[in-house]
């Protein structure tokens, strides 16, 4: 009798903890090395951009995606983790550029750069908000470098190429 009750309790506890552990595991993102954005492959990001009509090409060390609207060019280079074979298909660095921006493209420019800038923190709303706040300030201003958690953000305004460029990479 006691043995039967114990068996039932054992099974119920086992099922419960199994379901809990499984659900918890499925929420977790696999560590992909120090240099990369965890939990999302470079191919997934490229496909998402292509679905939005961006044209992408594999340059071996990185994927390059582009969209032109009038004279304005939106360009993004997604760099692979080239020194770690296991994480080769993950993103180690992002360079997003807007060429020929003007006052009428500010909102689209912010939306474009925000998507790349928040990729490492996509599941962390408070950090996403922080990144977007910094980005909005820099796009309206002259650009700067900042560190948010383990990531380094640099926004530069290039007068020669009439462009602004955002670089997102791991801090060292």
């Amino acid at each position: 009798m006691v043995g039967a009750i114990g068996l039932v309790v054992f099974l119920l506890a086992g099922l419960g903890s199994y379901a809990f552990a499984r659900a918890d595991r499925e929420q977790d993102t696999k560590y992909c090395g120090h240099d990369c954005i965890p939990g999302v492959r470079i191919g997934t990001v490229v496909e998402a951009l292509q679905d939005q009509g961006h044209t992408c090409a594999d340059r071996r060390r990185f994927w390059s995606c582009e969209l032109r609207v009038g004279k304005v060019r939106f360009e993004a280079d997604l760099f692979r983790v080239d020194n770690l074979v296991n994480f080769y298909e993950y993103i180690s660095k992002v360079e997003a550029r807007i060429v020929n921006p003007d006052s009428t493209t500010a909102a689209a420019g912010l939306g474009y750069m925000s998507w790349f800038a928040t990729l490492p923190h996509r599941d962390d709303p408070s950090t996403v908000k922080k990144v977007n706040g910094w980005l909005a300030e820099q796009i309206a201003g002259d650009g700067d470098t900042t560190f948010i958690l383990d990531w380094e953000y640099t926004l530069e305004r290039e007068a020669n190429t009439r462009s602004i460029e955002l670089t997102v990479k791991r801090r060292y």
């Binding site: 499925e26 993102t29 696999k30």
Partner: peptide
């Protein structure tokens, strides 16, 4: 038996 997320959908 459960793998962590290795490739989530893009945001």
């Amino acid at each position: 038996t459960t793998e962590p997320v290795t490739d989530a959908s893009a945001p």
